[in-house]
């Protein structure tokens, strides 16, 4: 299945997997926010955030968000008329800038434990 490994196809799979994961994350996020009404629970969850394991999870979340957003931008640009021959270049640009932003963005999250 070599077709799976081409830039466009790879980008599509990432988009799909990250999309599903992020939608599932909405549940957790709302659960977390619901604790805002309950100071005891909120404090408990806050503490949980200091756990390095959860920190990695949070960085992972950031990675998903960046991947989905940057490929999303790529897709919208292509929808708006950027020619097909640019699609691979756009994929690599998205991957590169996304990577850099992830590196910068994950620093405040992981900085404490690394």
């Amino acid at each position: 299945m070599r077709y799976r490994l081409r830039a466009g196809s790879f980008a599509w799979m990432i988009q799909r997997i990250s999309g599903v994961a992020l939608t599932i994350y909405i549940f957790f996020h709302l659960y977390y926010l619901s604790s805002l009404r309950d100071p005891v629970k909120f404090e408990l969850l806050r503490k949980l955030l200091d756990d390095p394991f959860v920190k990695f999870g949070e960085a992972g979340l950031l990675l998903l968000v960046i991947a989905h957003s940057f490929n999303g931008i790529r897709l919208i640009l292509l929808d708006m008329g950027v020619p097909t021959r640019m699609q691979k270049t756009l994929f690599f640009i998205a991957a590169l800038t996304g990577g850099i932003i992830f590196f910068i963005g994950s620093w405040p999250i992981l900085g404490g434990i690394l």
Binding site: R16, G19, V20, L22, T23, I26
Partner: peptide
């Protein structure tokens, strides 16, 4: 956005 995506999939 999330649920529409899921619907499509």
């Amino acid at each position: 956005h999330g649920f529409n995506g899921l619907l499509g999939i």
